[in-house]
Design a protein around this nucleic acid. Structure first.
Length: 449
DNA sequence: TTTTGAGTTGTTCGA
DNA sequence: GTCGAACAACTCAAA
C-alpha cells in the first residue's frame, strides 16, 4: 500500500495533540489530499488513568478540536478494530502516527499495522528510544554517559508548521462520538496553553531553574510535564528555545528533558520493567503486609502520616493531581523505606492520581528510589523526611499551604513540631530512625542472599 | 587489555 | 557548628 492512494490520509493523534511542529502532519499533508484527524478513546488506557488525567486529556482534545475547526473525529473502542474500520469507511490510503514506544502502544500499533498502511513519523521524544547506543551497540544503564551521547545526537530543527493549514476533512464517520467537554474553568491545556506556559516559564523562572527547582515552597518549576504528557508541545520545540539561552538554568532544564528520553529508552529495551524490578535481585525484598501495613498505606495515600512534608505532598497530589518533584522523591522514599511497602503500589497510585503520569518516568523514578532500577540510588540513601523538609522548605511555607492543621505554626518549626501537635494532626505513624535501620537491614539481606 | 575514576537528587557519626 | 569519612556495588568511558 502507498500513501499516494486516492483516498484521504488519516492522522491518528495519540500523544501528540497539537498541529505545530508535528512531522506526522507534514507527512500526511505531503500527499496533497484531504486529511482526517482521528483520536481513539481506548478504555485500556483510560481505565488506569484516573479521573484527573482523563479530565486533562478531554481538555487537550477539546483544544485540538478547536484548532481543527471542529473537525477532530473522536471514536471509542479498541484501536485494532476501529482504526482499520475508519480507514475502510473512508477509503483512506494511509494512517499516520508518531511512534509509541510503551509496551502496550507497541503491541497495539503492530496489530493496527497488520490491517492498514501505518506510517510512523517521529515520536514524542527529542531523541527516540533505541537511537542512543553505547559503542558496543547496547543501551545505557547510567544516565550521565547517556546524556553525553544524547547531546551529540542532537535533534532535528522544528518541522515546517505550514501543515497547520491542511485541508481537514469533515469527520462524517458513523462511529464518531462526541468529545467530552469539561468546564472551561480549571487547568488550561492544549497547544496554545502549552506554548504560553513555556514562554512564561522562560521569562520568569528558567534562569534560576538549577537552584529553584528543588524548592517546593517557591513553586518555580516549569509545570510543563502535563503538556508534554499529551504532546501539546514537543520537547524539540523547547530544546530549540534553550539553544539560545546560555547559563546553568537552561542547562539544568535540558538535563531534565534528557531524563525523560533516558527512561523512555530504558523502558523500550526492558518493557517488563514497567511492572517488575529492573534489577531482579530485588525480587527477594521483604515487604510488610497485613492490617497494620494496610493502615499505613491508607495513611500515606491520605496524607496523614504525621510527617509534615510527606503529608503536604500527598495532599497536593490529591488536590492538584501534581506534586513537586523533590517531594515526589520524599514521599516515595517514605513509602518504600519507612513503611516497607513495594514501590509498584506507590507507582500505581501515582499513575492513577497524576495528571502528568508518564509510565516510563514514573515507574523508573520509583525504581530509582527503591534502589531496584537503572542508575539507582545507593541502598543506604534513605531520605530523612524532617531534614528534607527543613532543607527544601526552609520556612515551612509549602507545608502550611497543603496541611491546614499546621497553619498556626510559624516558620521551620512546622517540620519538627517541637512545641507539640495541633489537635487533629496525627502522631507519626512510624519512628523514622527505627524504620531507617529496618530498611538497611532488609537491603543487607539482599546482598547476602 | 587492564586499570582507574566518576557517577541527579543523602544521612549519620565522630573529630 | 562544620567537616570528612563511611555507608556497596556496578556501569561506563577514558587513559
Amino acid at each position: 500500500m502507498s500513501s499516494s492512494s486516492a483516498g484521504p490520509a488519516i492522522v491518528w493523534f495519540r500523544r501528540d495533540l497539537r498541529t505545530g511542529d508535528l512531522p506526522t502532519l507534514t507527512a500526511a499533508a505531503a500527499g496533497g489530499g484531504e486529511v482526517l484527524g482521528l483520536f481513539v478513546l481506548d478504555d485500556a488506557l483510560l481505565r488506569p488513568s484516573g479521573p484527573a488525567r482523563r479530565d486533562v486529556l478531554y481538555r487537550a482534545l477539546a483544544a485540538l478540536d478547536d484548532d481543527l475547526g471542529g473537525r477532530l473525529c473522536v471514536v471509542r473502542g479498541d484501536p485494532r478494530v476501529v482504526v482499520p474500520q475508519a480507514a475502510r469507511d473512508l477509503g483512506a490510503g494511509s494512517v499516520h502516527v508518531s511512534a509509541d514506544f510503551g509496551p502496550y502502544g507497541r503491541a497495539r500499533d503492530d496489530g493496527v499495522a497488520r490491517e492498514v498502511d501505518l506510517v510512523r513519523t517521529g515520536s514524542p521524544y527529542a531523541v527516540s528510544p533505541g537511537r542512543v547506543r553505547k559503542a558496543d551497540g547496547g543501551p545505557y544503564r547510567v544516565f550521565t554517559p547517556y546524556f553525553g551521547r544524547w547531546l551529540d545526537h542532537g535533534w532535528r530543527a522544528p518541522a515546517d508548521t505550514s501543515a497547520r493549514t491542511v485541508p481537514w476533512m469533515e469527520p462524517k464517520l458513523s462511529i464518531r462520538v462526541p468529545i467530552p467537554r469539561p468546564d472551561a474553568a480549571g487547568l488550561q491545556v492544549g497547544e496554545r496553553a502549552a506554548l504560553d506556559r513555556w514562554a512564561e516559564f522562560g521569562e520568569d523562572d528558567l534562569a534560576d531553574y538549577d537552584t529553584g527547582r528543588d524548592r517546593p515552597d517557591l513553586d518555580v518549576t516549569s509545570r510543563m510535564s502535563v503538556h508534554l504528557k499529551y504532546g501539546c508541545i514537543h520537547p524539540r520545540t523547547m530544546l530549540a528555545d534553550l539553544a539560545d539561552r546560555p547559563g546553568r538554568g537552561p542547562e539544568a532544564f535540558r538535563r531534565q528533558l534528557a531524563w525523560r528520553d533516558f527512561y523512555a529508552d530504558v523502558l523500550h529495551h526492558r518493557p517488563e520493567s514497567a511492572r517488575r524490578n529492573y534489577d531482579q535481585r530485588f525480587d527477594a525484598m521483604r515487604y510488610d503486609s497485613g492490617p497494620s501495613a494496610e493502615s499505613a498505606w491508607a495513611a500515606w495515600c491520605a496524607g496523614r502520616t504525621g510527617y509534615p512534608i510527606v503529608d503536604a505532598g500527598m495532599r497536593q497530589l490529591l488536590a492538584e493531581g501534581w506534586m513537586h518533584n523533590r517531594v515526589r522523591m520524599i514521599v516515595a522514599s517514605f513509602l518504600v523505606k519507612d513503611l516497607h511497602l513495594p514501590w509498584w503500589r506507590g507507582a500505581r497510585y501515582f499513575m492513577r492520581q497524576l495528571i502528568d503520569g508518564d509510565l516510563a518516568s514514573n515507574q523508573h523514578g520509583w525504581q530509582w528510589t527503591a534502589g531496584s532500577g537503572t542508575d539507582a540510588a545507593p541502598y543506604f540513601r534513605v531520605f530523612n523526611p524532617i531534614s528534607q523538609g527543613q532543607k527544601f522548605d526552609p520556612d515551612g511555607d509549602y507545608v502550611r499551604r497543603w496541611v491546614p492543621e499546621l497553619r498556626g505554626i510559624a516558620g521551620r518549626r512546622v517540620h519538627t513540631l517541637d512545641d507539640g501537635r495541633p489537635a487533629g494532626y496525627p502522631d507519626p505513624i512510624v519512628d523514622h530512625a527505627v524504620e531507617r535501620g529496618e530498611a538497611l537491614a532488609r537491603y543487607g539481606e539482599l546482598k547476602r542472599g
